[in-house]
């Protein structure tokens, strides 16, 4: 197996296909986008690279800056929700009996086997104004109304004339629910891996020393799985930031994220240079986040050793 190090032809045989693939389908498009981002529309179909910074400076205009902040805020809030929901799920799986574990993990991974578009339409069906959630609530509302009426109270005064559906679609709540739903497996799996690696005796030692269950969770379990939590947060947050389908369908054009606006530049607005600049800006934001994380973990390791 070591021969590829010494024999250049063996090395090339292994290396060339993947290298060629990456150059052709990753590096080349990226370079084209990079050139576009410094270009201007010269006609309806032609873009000329003029090395203008105008496309990038437009990102700082309030309308677009707001869009970036909104994307960051939506992704950030959804990531926090994912961590809060995902940690207990991971804990349950990690502490489940051996025979149960593969099935529970399967249940986490199962949604990946269904097309995202279909799952998102299913969410529309659930979250719509006449969707499953609201019809369930309406059913409860009607029962409550009838019950109040029956005991002689003025139901209309207490509960209003009509059932008011909770509006999810076209609002932040709908988009956050969608983002959390789609990305939760990315949160659960790294946390599960961290919990699985953790020696149970640390938790027992904490209890043995007089700590309550809650205190053990806070002072031992969370700090000792922090690396897994950070990984989970990052690999949940980054794909969320570039989400397209979820805000497009659940946001109804009223809760756009970056990807939706980028798509519009390439299609409706026919402003490829600006779309390219926004795409690359999103990439830079991602790099910065990863760099901060790498720097933080380096410093953490530096402090330990």
């Amino acid at each position: 197996m070591e021969s590829f190090r010494s024999n250049i032809r063996v090395f090339l045989a292994f290396f060339a296909p993947s290298f060629g693939w990456l150059v052709l389908f990753f590096v080349a498009p990226l370079v084209i986008i990079f050139l576009y981002s410094f270009g201007e529309n010269v006609s309806l179909t032609e873009v000329e690279t003029t090395w203008t910074w105008r496309n990038y400076s437009r990102i700082l205009e309030p309308e677009i800056a707001t869009l970036f902040w909104r994307s960051l805020a939506l992704s950030g809030m959804s990531t926090i929700v994912c961590l809060v929901i995902g940690y207990p799920i991971a804990l349950v799986i990690a502490t489940a009996r051996g025979a149960w574990k593969p099935w529970l993990l399967l249940a986490i991974i199962l949604p990946f086997w269904t097309n995202l578009l279909i799952r998102t339409y299913a969410l529309l069906n659930i979250l719509g104004n006449r969707g499953r959630v609201n019809s369930g609530l309406e059913w409860l509302w009607e029962r409550g109304y009838a019950a109040l009426d029956a005991i002689g109270l003025n139901a209309t005064a207490i509960m209003g004339e009509d059932f008011e559906p909770i509006i999810f679609l076209g609002r932040w709540s709908g988009v956050i629910i969608g983002l959390v739903y789609v990305h939760l497996p990315f949160t659960v799996l790294p946390i599960y891996a961290a919990l699985e690696r953790l020696d149970r005796s640390y938790l027992e030692a904490s209890l043995d020393l007089g700590a309550s269950q809650w205190r053990t969770f806070r002072s031992v379990l969370i700090p000792m799985t922090m690396a897994g939590l950070v990984t989970a947060a990052i690999i949940t947050f980054i794909p969320m930031l570039g989400s397209y389908l979820t805000p497009a369908l659940l946001g109804r054009g009223q809760v756009d994220m970056i990807a939706n606006v980028i798509e519009r530049q390439f299609k409706g607005a026919n402003d490829w240079p600006f779309g390219a600049a926004m795409s690359l800006f999103l990439l830079y934001v991602t790099f910065i986040i990863l760099a901060i994380q790498a720097f933080a973990s380096m410093r953490r390791r530096g402090a330990d050793g």
């Binding site: 640390y202 030692a205 904490s206 007089g210 700590a211 309550s212 205190r215 000792m224």
Partner: peptide
């Protein structure tokens, strides 16, 4: 109190903090 086979000394706390942990809980 127990001394575990793997010792289970908390890796994210200093020696001092490890020893103080149980007293803090009291």
């Amino acid at each position: 109190n127990m001394v575990f086979q793997s010792y289970a000394v908390f890796p994210h706390m200093s020696v001092e903090q490890n020893v103080a942990y149980g007293l803090k809980m009291d």
